[in-house]
Design a protein around this nucleic acid. Sequence first.
DNA 1: ACCCTAGGTATTGTTGAACAATCCCGCAAG
DNA 2: CTTGCGGGATTGTTCAACAATACCTAGGGT
Lengths: 238, 238
Amino acid sequence: MTGGARTGAGPRPDRSSAAERAADELRRRITEGELTPQARLSEESLVDVLHVSRNTLREAFRLLTHEGLLVYRLNRGVFVPELDEDDLVDLYRLRRAIECDAVRTLRDLDETRLQPLRADVADGEASARRGDWRQVGTANMSFHRHLVGLAGSRRIDEVTARLLAELRLAFHIIDIPQELHEPNVARNRALVELLAAGDVAGAAAALEAYLLDSEARLLEALRERRAPSGGAAADADR
Amino acid sequence: MTGGARTGAGPRPDRSSAAERAADELRRRITEGELTPQARLSEESLVDVLHVSRNTLREAFRLLTHEGLLVYRLNRGVFVPELDEDDLVDLYRLRRAIECDAVRTLRDLDETRLQPLRADVADGEASARRGDWRQVGTANMSFHRHLVGLAGSRRIDEVTARLLAELRLAFHIIDIPQELHEPNVARNRALVELLAAGDVAGAAAALEAYLLDSEARLLEALRERRAPSGGAAADADR
DNA sequence: ACCCTAGGTATTGTTGAACAATCCCGCAAG
DNA sequence: CTTGCGGGATTGTTCAACAATACCTAGGGT
């Protein structure tokens, strides 16, 4: 008898837990840049905002920690990590190893499986024409996730998802989205064409050069960002 | 109430949370094989055994989920995952990508940095002479963790740790530890010698053959284990 | 004036109990 | 034999409180 009400327009069980929904909301805020690096996420205040209990919120924190979007510091709270240059080098090193290997060992490609990649490329090109660089970045991430997904390995997909999520953290530090994302659009299209032609070795080589270049551009942007004035991070922590 | 007791055992705060300690204990039970795959971990019973609250226990579950040692099923509980053949192939695929890349890109090796590897090899050889195949397996894991550690990448180390922990789950399914672990001893020594000679390319190639062979042996063992009669798993729980 | 130490306060870590939602199992009906 | 329906057990979530720790501020020594 207590049941019932669920059938109507009420909040459906959603096949996901409250912790996951809270994590979704936090993930959005982090990737959108609303929560800036090094900011402490207060349990007390987030409980009010997300309308979940402290325990559930902490479980959401764990979820996001798993994705690399938050870090725990015992007795001090959770923080959005700030990536430094070493982190970027580290991330790209792992990324090259994973992505290049995934492409290098590809077999039995057909046009059907390339379809999601082509959709991402088209999205990136359209967004670039609109000047929506954030969406270009998002399409680029989706492209690489689909690219790695061709390997058909669950664990490789997981590592990649974590990698890209963490990498996205670096984008908010940087204020030159166009120079950063624009070159990727053409590179992604070139990659798809190489794969469509069955040239996996060529695609792997192109991808490696692509990633090395992307890393260099990001590093340079990060250094410029930090060098100029330095302590310009006057952030009211409300 | 029952509290207090904490003063006697550990004077120092331990620098770790109760959830981590509970996770440590669970991890031990899983890797030692006390908790068998597909067994559900009841919250109620583990609360009594580990002397933590349900919330803390659930946080420990999350921690181990991150390591791949447990899986969550919504509204059904947590389970020790049972690796099937696809999982093994998946794990080894990622493992080859990571380890071979780590070795292939090694630079500036000197004898000092090889020291931990030599210690693991010696441990493996000594344990093999004693017939302690479980310890041979442990030394082998330590060897590979140190091997990958030479790359000096935090995230690669993390992925590797998770990988090896998950791989260990497969060992308990298998009842022929000697045939499985014995060949690794000599292979590990050969790898160290190649690295000491500065032949990283040779080492990378040897490692790839090594891992392919290791995967094949594990797969065969798993198939034999499952094919024969099947329901021989008369395991007294607790 | 500076450094170091001590105490107060805010925040996190952990607990236990309670309730709601969901799943699993056995059983009756077709 | 399959199908639909309770009843009981387990997980999911909330709440309120206490303990432990870190941060901040004030006071004393040099």
